[in-house]
Amino acid sequence: MKLRKVIESSLLLAGGFVLHQIMPPLVAGMKPDMSLLMLFIVVLLYQDKKLTILSGLVAGIISALSTTFPGGQVANMIDKPITALAVLALVLSGKYFNLSKKFSLGIIGALGTIISGSIFLGIASLIVALPQSFMVLFISVVLPAALLNTCFLYMLYPIIAKIKGLLPKIEFDSEKETA
């Protein structure tokens, strides 16, 4: 795993943290986790298992530190790495089945958010009593978040991929020796 990939992923996850902070809560203090959007973009750009796990852990820590949901700290720490690996599996299966990039983005945005929201709510319900029923929170928070993440993924991924392609390749001496 190259240092450049780790740094770029960290910057994207930091952008996800900012998006998460400015998103207003929808129901019972829960707000859509827009940091998932950047986690999805990291997985799409690099498709590296180690980086995916690392990014999932970092996204979980960032979300845990910024959550307003009771019990959300533990739920975020468990949900993000699992979601990251699930999204990587979706990306790789999309390549295997030769799906178009646009169709794959829609599947990743929607299913990835639904997987994350389901795991989060399931774990949170085991730790604390949910302020509303699972189904109410799923319909009122997870599904709108899935729609938002899918729309934003369609908008942001091509821009970020293009910017990434325009960045100059800087190699460090240590990378040349180990590569």
Rank of each mutant, 00 (worst) to 15 (best):
L26T: 15
Y46G: 02
L51I: 04
I61H: 09
K31Y: 03
M30N: 03
V58D: 03
F40E: 03
L45E: 04
L45T: 11
T67P: 04
L37G: 04
Q21H: 15
I53W: 10
M30V: 03
G71H: 11
Q73Y: 14
G72N: 09
A64S: 08
G29T: 02
V27C: 13
A59H: 13
M23Q: 12
Y46A: 10
K49I: 06
V58R: 00
I53H: 12
Y46C: 12
L65A: 01
G56F: 00
L65G: 00
M34G: 09
D33M: 06
K31D: 03
L65H: 06
D48P: 02
A64Y: 14
H20P: 06
V43F: 01
Q73P: 08
I62H: 00
V27T: 15
L36N: 02
K31I: 07
G56E: 05
T52S: 03
A28Q: 10
A75T: 08
K49C: 01
D48F: 02
G60H: 05
M23R: 03
P25V: 15
L65R: 10
K50Y: 02
K50S: 07
I22V: 15
F69L: 06
V18Y: 13
P25I: 15
T67R: 06
A75Q: 05
G56Q: 03
V58L: 11
T67Y: 13
V74D: 11
V58H: 02
A75I: 06
F40L: 13
H20R: 14
V42N: 07
G71Q: 10
P24Y: 15
Q21N: 13
A75E: 08
V27W: 11
L51W: 00
I41F: 11
V42E: 05
G60Q: 07
V42L: 08
I53F: 10
V58F: 10
I53E: 00
L57F: 15
V58N: 00
V43Y: 03
M30A: 08
M34L: 15
L57D: 06
L44M: 00
V42M: 10
P24E: 12
G71W: 12
A28M: 13
A64H: 08
G72S: 14
S35Y: 01
K49R: 07
A59S: 10
L57Q: 05
G29W: 15
A59D: 04
H20S: 14
S35F: 01
L37F: 13
P25K: 13
F40W: 11
K49V: 00
S63R: 08
S63K: 10
K49M: 09
I62W: 08
I22K: 05
G72R: 00
M23V: 08
L51G: 02
P25R: 11
F40C: 08
F40N: 01
V58W: 02
L19W: 06
V42F: 02
L26A: 13
V18Q: 09
Y46Q: 12
T52W: 01
V74K: 01
Q73F: 15
L37S: 04
